[in-house]
């Protein structure tokens, strides 16, 4: 009987260790990677990803690419990401801190290279229940993305056909802005 108890305890420990490892260790590795690439700028600032970080985070993307990113943190309020990209293929992908894709769009889906994405923390169940229920008008422009995780990484990628295009594409992308939203969500 005592042995059965310990076998069951070992089984539950194994299940907990399995689930904990799958859910926590990859997330810790991602958060470490995000902290490393954004160490110089900090959260809610747009920065260009150097070539070696591009290769590390997106190894199957071509080396002739420009990538910019923003390590966002919406715990203190909404964050807005604005870009004005030149014509050509590009993608915007917003990952949360668990590696899930929150939002993604490309040039064809967007229809414009000039856009703003407003990132905000998703309201909790209690906050939703407390809400008045009236449709309050919003003065936000652009797309709105709500996330249950308060941190993550937004990445804009644009490939270049030849090396001569890289400086101009890099210059355009570097004009992008990521900042705490001045407007309430």
């Amino acid at each position: 009987m005592r042995r059965l108890f310990w076998i069951l305890a070992a089984l539950f420990t194994g299940i907990a260790a399995h689930s904990g490892f799958v859910l926590l260790v990859p997330q810790l590795k991602l958060n470490h990677a995000i902290a490393r690439v954004s160490a110089a700028t900090g959260p809610n600032r747009f920065f260009m990803l150097p070539a070696d970080d591009q290769l590390r985070l997106f190894p199957s993307y071509p080396p002739m690419s420009v990538m910019g990113a923003c390590a966002f943190d919406v715990s203190q309020g909404p964050v807005e990401l604005s870009a004005n990209l030149p014509p050509g293929f590009w993608t915007l992908t917003i990952f949360d801190s668990t590696g899930n894709v929150l939002f993604t769009v490309n040039d064809a889906q967007s229809g414009t290279g000039s856009f703003t994405v407003n990132l905000a923390r998703a309201p909790s169940l209690i906050e939703m229940l407390k809400a008045s229920g009236s449709d309050e008008p919003s003065d936000l422009t652009g797309w709105k993305v709500s996330t249950a995780e308060t941190t993550g990484l937004a990445v804009i990628w644009q490939p270049a056909v030849d090396a001569a295009e890289l400086p101009s594409r890099s210059q355009s992308l570097a004009q992008s802005l990521c900042r705490r939203s001045p407007k309430p969500a």
């Binding site: 799958v22 260790v25 990859p26 997330q27 590795k29 991602l30 990677a33 590390r56 985070l57 997106f58 190894p59 992908t93 990952f95 668990t98 590696g99 899930n100 894709v101 990484l153 990445v155």
Partner: peptide, 11 residues
């Protein structure tokens, strides 16, 4: 997703 993250990359 963990497969990608464990390799230090994004999916």
């Amino acid at each position: 997703v963990a497969h990608f993250l464990m390799a230090g990359r994004l999916p």
